[in-house]
């Protein structure tokens, strides 16, 4: 198990390095110069432009620039916002709470919906519960999240005179107000995510249910419930957990849109502010942080394989 963990950890670090190079590289290869974009909007003169280029390290060759950035980032220093002069690392840490809360609540709601639905669909295959579950899943897959969220906000206000309390409250300080603000975005988010999860769980369960060992266990006289719990569900957990990991980039991408619509000050809102202010430092940092969050999630998923499946624990 320790070898397995170590290997996974190494791979995760490698992936994070890769994505940082990719993000930094993409930002650097932008045609034209970021400083020119900034200057045009802030009316910098040539001397200020020169100073800014120096400060951002844009004069250096890419790998020198990247090395400096990485060195600072490893010490938790993601630079200062060009607009507010505040430490980007501190701002990010505060906003990560909001986004993670939304993502986690969304995933919990999605799982609460998809697990019973997926089980029902697989056990009653090709009967009406299956058709209903599958239809819900396909609908959820095709509905644009931002559309659903916009409709909910506007019609919530129009028909029920309902709107979330203004002014975001952190969950650690005012949990009740916080949940009043979060439940609707989390619910809609969860509904959207439940689509993929239901489908995967159903397919995975069907796959397990037709295995020979299921027949053996049944022949040995195991009750259906025990069979489902001990053999079928446990074995379909791997693809299910995998899909949660794979969904995570989508989850965080969706969070940007949901945060905008529900006016929540998370990473997504920070990114959009950064973009609106042409704040190069902020945008690059948010991208790397989000990629980092994705990679850590996938690492946790990989680690959970070790717990879920003894073969992986030993084999790797």
């Amino acid at each position: 198990m320790r070898g397995y963990l170590l290997r996974r950890l190494l791979l995760a670090a490698l992936t994070l390095l890769g994505i940082s190079v990719l993000v930094a590289g993409m930002m650097r290869t932008l045609p034209g110069d970021v400083v020119d974009v900034l200057a045009a909007e802030a009316f910098y003169d040539d001397r200020e432009k020169e100073r800014l280029r120096e400060e951002l390290g844009l004069e250096d060759p890419f790998f020198v620039y990247f090395g400096k950035w990485l060195g600072a980032a490893l010490q938790g220093d993601f630079g200062e916002s060009l607009r507010t002069q505040r430490s980007v690392g501190d701002d990010l840490a505060r906003r990560l709470d909001v986004t993670m809360e939304l993502a986690i609540l969304g995933l919990i709601i999605a799982t609460t919906i998809s697990v019973p639905l997926g089980i029902l669909a697989a056990l009653r295959r090709s009967q009406w519960p299956d058709y209903v579950a599958r239809s819900i899943a396909v609908f959820a897959l095709a509905i644009p999240g931002f559309w659903l969220a916009t409709l909910a906000v506007v019609f919530g206000a129009k028909w029920f005179s309902w709107s979330p309390p203004l002014g975001y409250q952190p969950i650690w300080e005012a949990p009740f107000t916080n949940l009043q603000q979060m439940w609707l975005p989390a619910l809609l988010f969860g509904l959207i995510l439940a689509g993929v999860q239901t489908r995967i769980l159903r397919t995975a369960l069907l796959d397990v249910l037709r295995q020979d060992y299921m027949l053996t266990a049944r022949a040995k006289g195991l009750s259906r419930l025990l069979l489902l719990r001990r053999h079928a569900l446990r074995n379909s957990l791997i693809p299910f957990v995998t899909v949660i990991g794979v969904q995570f980039p989508v989850v965080l991408g969706g969070a940007v849109v949901f945060e905008l619509i529900f006016a929540l000050p998370g990473l997504g809102a920070y990114l959009l502010d950064g973009i609106a202010n042409r704040d190069y430092v902020v945008v690059q940092a948010v991208n790397v942080w989000i990629a980092g969050a994705v990679i850590i999630t996938n690492l946790l998923v990989d680690v959970s394989y070790g717990f879920l499946d003894p073969r992986i624990r030993v084999g790797a």
Partner: peptide, 23 residues
Amino acid sequence: QRIVDVLMAFPGLIIVISLTAFL
């Protein structure tokens, strides 16, 4: 496979808006 790992962690929507905004 390593490149795929990186690409799978690529938050598509977020990078799209970041890049189009600057470009």
